[in-house]
């Protein structure tokens, strides 16, 4: 029941979200070691901040990027969630929204941008192309699912997804962040090189 309280999102019921079993499993795994109450509440505070301030790196390659622009526009207004601060520099972003097909030529660039991001960082795969190669999965030049390149936190299916579906996915990500433990293991989910290349 702790999960329910922690992952509450305004105007949404717990049961209206899909894939809750994953979060429950995550909480069980994290609680196995146990944590102090003080540490726990500090964690909650930090997670509140982190989940409400997801600045995305715009990584639009094709169609979904246009829907992302629509998301930022007046009708759907990302700003309501505080997502509107899209950063163009990977250093300042908290999550990378991969919008559109990732080709073989683009894959190293995506990986590099991901490496350049500051921890803690998240990846949202938007649209069929990023999830599985989508319409182009039989092509010779398309990566069939970006999970081969970077760890993905949330998948938003659609071709392209509706703006509302974007929000649904973003709220899923917020919920995932809320149950994580910042003071234990959120950073460095992957081993990373000591020094980063410059971004030119």
């Amino acid at each position: 029941m702790e999960v329910k309280k922690k992952t509450a999102i305004r105007s949404m019921q717990y049961d209206e979200f899909k894939n809750n079993d994953y979060l429950e499993q995550m909480v069980r795994d994290l609680n196995r070691d146990g944590a102090g109450i003080i540490l726990g509440s500090v964690d909650d505070l930090i997670n509140w901040g982190r989940s409400n301030s997801l600045w995305s790196l715009t990584f639009g390659t094709s169609c979904c990027a246009i829907e992302f622009m629509a998301l930022g526009a007046a009708r759907y207004d990302m700003a309501r969630f505080g997502f509107e601060v899209t950063r163009n520099s990977p250093r300042q972003a908290d999550m990378i929204m991969v919008l559109g097909t990732i080709t073989h030529k683009m894959a190293p660039v995506l990986r590099r941008l991901y490496d350049q991001m500051a921890e803690p960082k998240y990846v949202v795969a938007v649209g069929g192309c990023t999830i599985s190669g989508g319409p182009f999965r039989k092509s010779y030049h398309v990566v069939n699912g970006i999970d081969q390149i970077v760890p993905v936190d949330v998948y938003i299916p659609g071709c392209p997804p509706r703006p509302e579906a974007f929000y649904y996915g973003m709220m899923q990500l917020q919920r995932k962040i809320k149950v994580q433990k910042f003071l234990g293991g959120v950073n460095r989910q992957e081993k990373k090189p000591k020094d980063m290349d410059s971004n030119d």
């Binding site: 390659t61 559109g100 097909t101 080709t103 030529k105 683009m106 182009f136 039989k138 092509s139 030049h141």
Partner: peptide, 14 residues
């Protein structure tokens, strides 16, 4: 160019 080259013309052939 080519960062979004998906090989549509080749795919069309099948």
């Amino acid at each position: 160019l080519g960062y979004i080259h998906r090989g549509i013309e080749k795919m069309n052939e099948s």
